[in-house]
């Protein structure tokens, strides 16, 4: 009798536990569906809207004045390219240098840990704050908004990302490769640049691309540095249009034609990001090295 009751109780408990297990599994799956489905929907919607709005004019024409239909974002594309060019010139070399320090010179030191930590924290500082700082640092002394100041803001935002990915990629290079170079009597700087960095270069390049794609969509730091411009300009010393800024302005405008242009601009940015993210995935999954042990 007693034994049976214990067994029954045990069975009941086991059943309960398996029900809870099933429920938890169900909930996790539900959460995933709840998250992934709308996210995929957003993505598909963006691509659909963008693709149906994109045409050749988008790439070749400047915006038409309010009330006229047509026009494109040629000036914003060129503006973004200029801003990103300035940003990359500043952010990529400094970022790679920082990554080289972390991986090749600073390993295990307190300074390196502090740099790594600060880089990660800096990554979380809102971009609008970066914009204020650059405004105070460059725009105020110059007395006017400029493409240059916008580029500097973007470049500064690239540094932490590039530093951290460069470090990660360099750490994937086996130590044996470094030793081989040093044992040949190759100077350290040469060995780092021509051997270690070169070996990790596919990874470093894609890391830079990712940082590039991320800041390509940054809007907040440009609002009061590059400001935006509806005319054609390639002057680094004047305000300049940028794709994300234009999307922001057009999205909040009351004109359907401008909405269409905003969607097209969003698609261009998304394509850039998809490319960068896929490349990073591809390179890191394959490993930075082919066949090296």
């Amino acid at each position: 009798m007693g034994v049976d009751r214990v067994r029954d109780e045990h069975k009941l408990k086991a059943r309960l536990r398996s029900v809870i297990d099933g429920a938890a599994t169900g909930l996790a799956i539900l959460a995933t569906v709840l998250v992934v489905a709308p996210l995929v929907a957003i993505f598909v919607y963006l691509v659909y809207k963008g693709a149906s709005s994109l045409n050749l004019d988008f790439f070749t024409k400047v915006p038409k004045p309010v009330g006229e239909s047509g026009g494109g974002m040629a000036n914003a594309i060129v503006g973004s390219a200029l801003l990103l060019g300035v940003g990359s010139l500043l952010g990529i070399p400094v970022g790679i240098g920082g990554g080289i320090y972390l991986a090749e010179f600073g390993r295990g030191t307190k300074l390196a840990n502090a740099v790594r930590f600060t880089a990660d924290v800096l990554n979380g500082v809102p971009s609008i704050v970066m914009g204020i700082a650059i405004y105070a640092l460059i725009v105020v002394p110059q007395g006017h908004f400029s493409a240059f100041s916008g580029g500097v803001a973007l470049g500064i935002m690239m540094i932490p990302t590039v530093t951290r990915t460069t470090e990660e990629m360099l750490l994937m290079v086996p130590n044996a490769v470094r030793e081989a170079a040093l044992a040949l009597g190759v100077p350290n700087w040469r060995s780092v640049l021509s051997i270690t960095v070169k070996t990790a270069s596919p990874g470093i390049i894609t890391g830079c691309m990712l940082a590039f794609a991320r800041v390509a969509g940054e809007t907040a730091p440009l609002i009061f540095t590059a400001l935006g411009n509806t005319f054609w300009s390639v002057n680094l010393n004047r305000e300049i249009a940028a794709l994300p800024l234009q999307i922001y302005v057009y999205a909040l405008s009351p004109y359907d034609d401008w909405h269409r242009l905003a969607w097209a601009g969003a698609l261009v940015l998304i394509i850039l990001i998809v490319l960068a993210v896929s490349l990073v995935r591809y390179v890191t999954s394959r490993g930075v090295l082919k066949g090296a042990s």
Partner: peptide, 11 residues
């Protein structure tokens, strides 16, 4: 110097 594991420069 020749090391324990072959370490040619992979690139």
């Amino acid at each position: 110097m020749v090391f324990q594991r072959p370490n040619p420069f992979p690139t």
